[in-house]
Design a protein around this nucleic acid. Structure first.
Lengths: 343, 343
DNA sequence: ACACTCTCGGAAAGCGCTCTCCAACCCCCT
DNA sequence: AGGGGGTTGGAGAGCGCTTTCCGAGAGTGT
């Protein structure tokens, strides 16, 4: 552990030029004699110099970092929810999608979790102070003050999933309603007569959109009403919801489940009830997560190109970081139906 | 978007004191008149001042950030491997465990992925320069120069999983061999006569330990040899390995699968072959991931307390950051057997 | 040859913060 | 009343880097 790392000054001394010149060479600014150029690089190699990103950031006001903010309404340190969230492939897929773009641009990702009012304030403050060049926001709670806060704080931000309240913020989202409509039509096209739905919490935008898309499509085909049970996106809740649905509507022959994890649970409930899938009851899931292919029967599901969406969010953010005046924009991805065995 | 954020200077002016005094108050250093104390805090509130972490870090040499390094041997930008890795709950569980400790200490996590030689060099350089106070290292490739590099660079680091080569580095690991022995004994105790194993790649330390632990335990019970098939920890590979095993040893009545994901695949292969689990073939998995409870039959498996291990790694790292002279240490977690339906 | 433009390298001013000195002051003891 | 010890607040020197501003030297046209 050498006592001190070489600085620009050291390199300059070795190269026999001024700090400024070394800085120019390193940052690839022309106006430097090619010969000196080489001398400087040699000195850099000799000293083992590595620029100090902190010092550089302080003056350039650029950090080469974007923050991934996971906003939760009120998380306590030992809240099991967070561990549930991280264990869900959703989180990893988002990170993977983001990194696929960020890595190529030499940008690093800093993870920030924020739950309290106090935490949100500090976060926005830090962000404005150049803690990061911009932020990707994953907003979990149905209504979250954070999107508005970052916008008002002038922090470059792109959300994944649309904000619940109207806020002038860029975002990348999935056409959840179209996806649900796809599911409805597939079930209907298969000849199902009594089709139920297992939804997520109604106050979450994505979940709400899936319900309304399904409803609209069903209505168009003459099913103004359909059995609906609500879960919370966990497998257990899906199992429970399916039992409820089955108890109240024994004649059910089709079901749209708002995510694959709940579909997994629903599959179990159906099996326990002695119903064949897709023979007795056809099922369409949502997300095309790894759970869909792991299920037996493999799930027919709506593909949610999460990695692509996250990558797009990163691209959008990077563009905004480069050009702050870029107008707020949103990109909506169209989901597709993936037919497997369950419907 | 105000043109300029308030600085210490501004607060000092408003409060009518010097920069130094404001700094003292904000950092809670005593020796400040309580009355002035209040005046300063009021000024802070009035100006909406937030300390600039970058500037602070530059002088304190503390960033309040630890890096999570995912080291891969040779990743190209569009390598599908990485997306597979992120989609695996393993990654999220690690992040969740780390965050549970870091959050409480106001430390943020910066994600770094490194694949090339060039990238490793730059990473270590940045780390030494105080890009982060320390690093948590997730080393994927069987043999990775990075552990040695960080140690030699004097970067505080804790690995999750032991290094493949002997390097004086702190790490947190699971007693993989004990876990495998647990599985062997459970299968044996159940009365299985012909027990096979589906392992991961033999050059990965964790995988190797599971093989040797299983082998040792089997040998102790008179099974000097047992059928072994190798997979790569994916579900598909587990399915394939199971088919192979079954083809070569039709009398198999027990199998230990080195992770739950492969066990899931093995379960499918068994079903396709018309074997009942656990009736005809008993199965023990490894990890106690969400896949274990989602499987039917639910998997008897070895619990891998990954979140706790990650949390321990974070704790260890934080301690080393506070006291750089702390000796290198390692913590080994003992796995436990979770009995469900499959064995 | 002379004024003129251009190119190039160096000096130095910060970016926002911490922290070491040091001066000023108050209290108490003799 | 005078000196020692203990507080308290301010001035200022950096942390390592970028970048503006200038001056020196070189190249062009008349």
């Amino acid at each position: 552990m050498p006592s001190r790392l070489p600085t620009l000054e050291d390199v300059a001394r070795v190269a026999g030029v001024s700090r400024a010149t070394v800085s120019r060479v390193i940052n690839g600014i022309r106006n430097v004699d090619p010969q000196l150029h080489e001398v400087v690089w040699n000195a850099v190699g000799e000293t083992g110099y590595v620029p100090n990103r902190l010092a550089r950031s302080l003056v350039t006001r650029r950090t080469g970092t974007v923050a991934l903010i996971v906003s939760d309404s009120e998380t306590h340190d030992d809240d099991p929810f967070m561990s549930r969230f991280f264990a869900d492939p959703y989180f990893g897929r988002v990170v993977g999608g983001l990194m696929s773009v960020l890595r190529g641009n030499g940008v690093q990702l800093a993870l920030q979790i924020v739950g309290t009012e106090e935490g949100r304030k500090r976060l926005v403050g830090d962000l404005r102070n150049g803690q990061a060049d911009g932020a990707i926001l994953l907003s979990l709670p149905p209504v979250d003050p954070l999107p508005r806060m970052v916008v008002e704080g002038g922090v470059q931000t792109v959300m994944i999933g649309r904000p619940a309240e109207p806020v002038p913020i860029s975002y990348v989202d999935l056409a959840n309603d179209t996806g649900a409509a796809l599911a409805a039509e597939h079930l209907l096209g298969r000849g199902c007569r009594t089709i139920g739905m297992i939804s997520g919490p109604a106050d979450v935008p994505a979940s709400n959109d899936r319900i309304s898309g399904f409803r609209r499509s069903m209505a168009r085909h003459g099913h103004a009403w359909f059995p609906l049970a609500t879960g919370n996106f966990t497998r257990e809740s899906g199992e429970l919801a399916m039992r409820t649905l089955l108890a109240e509507h024994p004649d059910l022959d089709g079901v749209f489940v708002a995510n694959d994890l709940m579909a997994l649970g629903a599959l179990l409930a159906l099996r326990d009830a002695g119903r064949q899938v897709p023979g007795d009851v056809a099922m369409v899931g949502f997300d095309d997560s790894s759970a869909a292919t792991a299920a037996r029967p493999a799930l027919t599901t709506i593909r949610h190109p999460l990695e692509d969406m996250a990558a797009e969010a990163a691209t959008l953010l990077l563009a905004r970081v480069d050009d702050a005046d870029r107008p707020v924009s949103s990109v909506i991805y169209e989901p597709t139906l993936v037919v497997r065995q369950s419907a």
